[in-house]
């Protein structure tokens, strides 16, 4: 019973935060974003790419893409490490 009320209060709190935040958020696209306009106007010239999304991914925010690729790299390395054979190991 205590556990149930604990979970309930957690859910209520989260719903309050998330739904509350959604209600007082500004409408989508308002106010007009200076950053977006700059990128849309200049991507073809600066990054020489017709696909503005690709320009953002690899030019304007390329470092984030490098980071996300590294997240995947870490996940794969970690999965292979955890699933590795353990029988060759000796006592430490």
């Amino acid at each position: 019973m205590r556990q149930f009320f604990g979970w309930l209060s957690l859910v209520v709190l989260m719903v309050f935060l998330v739904i509350g935040a959604l209600f007082i958020m500004r409408p989508f696209g308002e106010p007009p974003s200076v950053m977006d306009d700059y990128i849309i106007d200049n991507a073809q010239e600066e990054a020489a790419s017709n696909n503005v999304v690709a320009a953002v991914l690899f030019d304007y925010r390329g470092f984030d893409t490098l980071g996300e690729a590294t997240v995947l790299f870490a996940a794969v390395t970690g999965a292979l490490l955890v699933l590795r054979a353990s029988h060759k190991k000796e006592e430490t």
Partner: peptide
């Protein structure tokens, strides 16, 4: 801020795999 989030992810995922390193 978003870059901070990305690097936080890198730190925590590699940290979790390192904690589980001694699989036996």
């Amino acid at each position: 801020l978003f870059n901070l989030f990305v690097f936080l992810e890198i730190t925590s995922i590699s940290g979790a795999a390192l904690i589980a390193f001694r699989t036996k």
